[in-house]
Simulated scan of single mutants.
Amino acid sequence: MKPWTQLDAAAIPGGGTLKLMRRGEDEFSITLGHNELMNSRLKGSEEALASLAIDRIGPRPGLRMLIGGLGMGFTLRAALAALPADAEIVVAELIPAVIAWARGPLASIFAGCLDDPRVTLREADVVAAIREGPSRYDAILLDVDNGPDGLMVESNDRLYDHSGLGAAKAALRSGGVLAVWSAGPDRSFTQRLRQASFAVEEKTVRARAGAGGAKHMIWLAAPQANGAATRPFQPVPRRRR
Score class of each variant (00 low, 15 high):
P105E: 14
E93R: 05
L66G: 02
E46Y: 10
F233N: 05
L220C: 06
D115Q: 05
P134M: 06
A82L: 15
V119I: 09
V180A: 02
V180Y: 06
A211N: 06
V144N: 07
A107C: 10
E47L: 14
P223W: 02
A209I: 13
R239K: 15
P148R: 03
A78H: 12
I140C: 03
I67L: 07
E201N: 10
A167T: 04
A79K: 05
D116K: 07
K19G: 02
I57K: 04
V127N: 03
G164W: 01
V153E: 06
G62N: 09
E27T: 15
P117G: 02
I140Q: 08
G73P: 13
M72F: 09
D115E: 09
G69S: 07
S108F: 08
A92G: 00
R103G: 00
R118D: 01
D8P: 11
L114W: 08
V144H: 02
I54S: 01
W181V: 10
I30T: 03
W219T: 04
L83P: 06
L141K: 00
D149P: 04
I12P: 00
R22Y: 08
A48R: 14
R192C: 04
S51D: 04
G44N: 14
G15V: 01
P13I: 06
M217I: 12
R240F: 14
S174D: 15
A179D: 09
S188A: 15
G213Q: 01
D161P: 10
R103H: 07
A207E: 05
A214H: 08
A102D: 12
M65I: 14
L172N: 00
L18R: 01
T5L: 10
S108Y: 05
R131K: 09
A229Y: 03
L165G: 06
P3V: 00
W101V: 12
D116S: 07
D143I: 13
G58E: 09
H162I: 11
A124V: 11
P117S: 03
S45P: 12
R239Q: 15
V144S: 06
A179R: 10
S174K: 10
G150K: 01
I57E: 01
F233V: 08
I67V: 01
P3L: 02
R239A: 15
T5A: 11
L20M: 02
A124L: 09
S135H: 13
G71H: 11
K43V: 15
S40V: 09
C113F: 00
G58V: 13
L80C: 13
P84Q: 00
R158M: 10
L42C: 09
V91R: 07
I54R: 05
G112E: 07
A124D: 06
A170Q: 04
R122Y: 05
L141A: 02
E25S: 14
L94T: 08
V180W: 05
